[in-house]
């Protein structure tokens, strides 16, 4: 994915050889990817990896050092105004006016985007219904719960019917049930052809994306469907151990890891279980079993388990450059 060839300029989001330097620091390093129409695309990575810098360049708020971004065929850096008229953006701060009612917030954003009165009335009704805010139109935004505020913020971000929507950690601090409802809305938009680029720190939400781009230290390190990433990107296998004394077993495995006796990429406690990442399950299952049995620990089960997306990301981040 490094040379950006094969990117279709017709795609709603196209990032080509994008680089951003702040002084000597390379925040985004030659990143290329494209998002398909109606796709829900997860843009993930640790804090400071270049995630938000990329979104700022896509929105035209920052200019690239080299390379380019196009949204709906418009260059983010040079055709910013035209592009803003047709994209939506929602940040984790839910930029709503707390002293306005729910309906007033929608009308305010509608006016900012220059909607006609007729259009505005229709959109207001649609958004109130979408966000499940019927009967709460006149409630002050400050009195709404987190889930409602979040759906209202999404409604305001799409009041002008954008074709592309950027959602930057839209679900931070919202309860799990509201988060599920929110994702149903995201997919309802996508079904209507809206392209969605979303960032999140919740791994269960990453699983919900149709495709994921993962950025680490400015470089795009993985780009694929969640299911495929788990098959292709994980270095090593994850073993799950059920043992008679997990705390003691953990100390033994940690010591073996630190002394170099065992090449464990990771060993961690998960409640009463231990997860260990080994180069190969076949080669190391019996080695681990023998090591623990010698110490008098009963190994009740020792199975290879499927890696989670989080396992895959940790592996990608720790991969040698």
């Amino acid at each position: 994915m490094s040379n950006g060839t094969g990117l279709d300029p017709q795609q709603p989001i196209v990032v080509r050889n994008l680089t951003k330097k702040f002084g000597d620091f390379v925040a985004v390093d030659n990143v290329s990817f494209a998002v398909n129409a109606g796709e829900v695309f997860g843009w993930l990575g640790p804090n400071g990896a270049g995630k938000t810098t990329t979104i700022r360049m896509l929105l035209g708020l920052l200019h690239p050092t080299s390379g380019s971004t196009h949204v709906l065929g418009l260059n983010s850096a040079t055709q910013t105004k035209a592009m803003h008229a047709i994209v939506g953006y929602m940040s984790q701060q839910f930029t709503l006016y707390n002293d306005l009612t729910a309906a007033e917030n929608i009308r305010f954003y509608g006016m900012v985007y220059g909607l006609s009165n007729r259009d505005l009335r229709q959109r207001q009704a649609e958004i109130i219904q979408m966000a499940g805010l019927e009967g709460r139109e006149k409630a002050l935004t400050s009195t709404l719960s987190g889930g409602w505020k979040q759906r209202l913020a999404l409604g305001c971000a799409i009041v002008h019917r954008p074709k592309v929507v950027f959602l930057d950690e839209p679900t931070a601090g919202v309860d799990p049930i509201s988060r599920r409802d929110f994702w149903t809305l995201i997919y309802a938009m996508a079904k209507e052809g809206v392209t969605v680029l979303v960032t999140t720190h919740y791994m269960d939400e990453a699983e919900l994306c149709q495709r994921i781009g993962f950025i680490s230290q400015g470089r795009l390190v993985a780009l694929d469907r969640p299911g495929r990433l788990k098959q292709t990107q994980m270095r090593g296998d994850v073993l799950e151990l059920n043992v008679s004394n997990p705390d003691l077993a953990m100390r033994i495995l940690k010591a073996a890891q630190q002394s170099g006796q065992l090449p464990l990429d990771e060993v961690a406690l998960y409640g009463a279980q231990i997860h260990a990442v080994v180069p190969s399950a076949e080669a190391y299952k019996e080695v681990l079993r023998a090591l623990l049995s010698t110490a008098g620990i009963e190994v009740r089960s020792l199975e290879r388990i499927a890696p989670t997306l989080e396992d895959v990301f940790i592996s990608a981040v720790n991969a040698p450059a």
Binding site: G45, N47, H201, L248, R251, K254, A268, L269, F313, I314
Partner: peptide, 18 residues
């Protein structure tokens, strides 16, 4: 905190426990 730092933090808690 991002998932990588979250995992590092939980690894420290695991050490304290074990």
């Amino acid at each position: 905190v991002d998932p990588v730092s979250r995992r590092e933090f939980w690894s420290l808690l695991g050490d304290l426990r074990a």
